[in-house]
Write a protein that binds this DNA or RNA. Structure first.
Lengths: 126, 126
DNA sequence: TGCGGTACTTACCTTTTGGTGAGCAAGGAG
DNA sequence: CTCCTTGCTCACCAAAAGGTAAGTACCGCA
């Protein structure tokens, strides 16, 4: 994938934002990084139930290209890579909060199932 | 009408909300319905540049099943169907506003292309 | 008579997305 | 010596999403 200019022309801001968060795990990665500040690759993998390494890398790379996350590589003997949110990523997370509330509301109203990730806040309901 | 339980268990509210707005045109449909109140099928189609009838119907049906839009059929000689937002759909739209702002901001910052729908404000016409 | 508009459905195809499992390089545990 | 760990990459597949074109039934317009 090319670095910055990801997708075609957008119709509106929602369009552009949705493009950037679309992906099975991106919202979760954003949330993990938001709640924990800095996370290593394997920590992220363990935090997302069922994610494959390929997808996690792929999403992380896209988010890096989109300027949402910072990636820091330590040239150590066991590889160590740390991910954290950029200002833009943090702002995106803020912008996602109302959406998260709407979703939580919806889950309650419709009695939908919720799966909690091990290591994250077990009670998403509040 | 309980054709609701679309996707598997959610991990958080963002997940549930993203599931409901994921789809190439759903955000736009939401926006059209929000700004115009009531729209007919063909009006929606003309408002979304490049949408196919199949996708529009499909998205509209899903959104109906998800309780986001109301669908009113008039048994008239030329078929007439009107779509409008439900309370839930309107609330979702409200929740999407910050995201839209973030996206608009991003478009400006990165100098991305914007395509205007005929009927909306146009600036970069071809 | 023939076309265009209304709101779809259906069949078929391509593109995109996501998943599986392997391998790599280097070290530590058993 | 072999397995497990870290953070990936690569090849291959399956499923989902989306697009194209046609058909349906009926009407008004020229």
């Amino acid at each position: 994938m090319a670095q910055a200019p990801r997708n075609g022309p957008y119709i509106c801001g929602i369009d552009a934002a949705l493009d950037v968060v679309s992906g099975k795990w991106k919202g979760l990665v954003l949330w993990e990084l938001h709640t924990h500040g800095v996370r290593r690759f394997a920590e992220l993998r363990r935090a997302l139930p069922g994610v494959s390494e390929k997808m996690l890398t792929q999403h992380l790379r896209q988010m890096e290209a989109d300027g949402l996350v910072d990636r820091t590589v330590y040239a150590e003997v066991p590889p160590k890579v740390e991910y954290s949110l950029t200002a833009s990523g943090a702002a995106l997370n803020e912008a996602l909060l109302p959406l998260g509330e709407w979703g939580r509301d919806r889950i309650h109203r419709h009695g939908l199932d919720v799966v909690a990730a091990p290591g994250t806040s077990a009670s998403t309901a509040s």
